[in-house]
Amino acid sequence: MIGVYHYMTVAAILFAMGTYGVLTRRNAIVIFMCIELMLNSVNLTFIALSRHLHSMDGQIFVFFVMTVAAAEAAVGLALMITFFRNRESIDVDQINMLKW
């Protein structure tokens, strides 16, 4: 029988993979994709707990998480395009103009 802990374990592994990708990759778009992955692992946790607690609030919150993800993707990709226009690359090692 599959319980809530199985789903939360998968979500935790997924979140850890997303964190690893954010920390190790240098392509900014791949880093954005890893952030989307982390948001989705949180969605999985919400849905699993929503079923476990017999409550619809988790599913409603997933709606808001998806909205935030869409807004973040729009602004983030606009930032990528602007940066690429200036530097001809989206390597995060080159984003150092604000470094103190």
Partner: peptide
């Protein structure tokens, strides 16, 4: 997990819209 509507959004919004936007960029 009993969330068919969220499953449909996952395909439509994430796989269909956001990821295609990434691919486009």
């Amino acid at each position: 997990l009993g969330a068919p509507l969220v499953a449909a959004w996952e395909v439509i919004v994430y796989a269909g819209a956001i990821m295609v936007l990434f691919l486009f960029i």
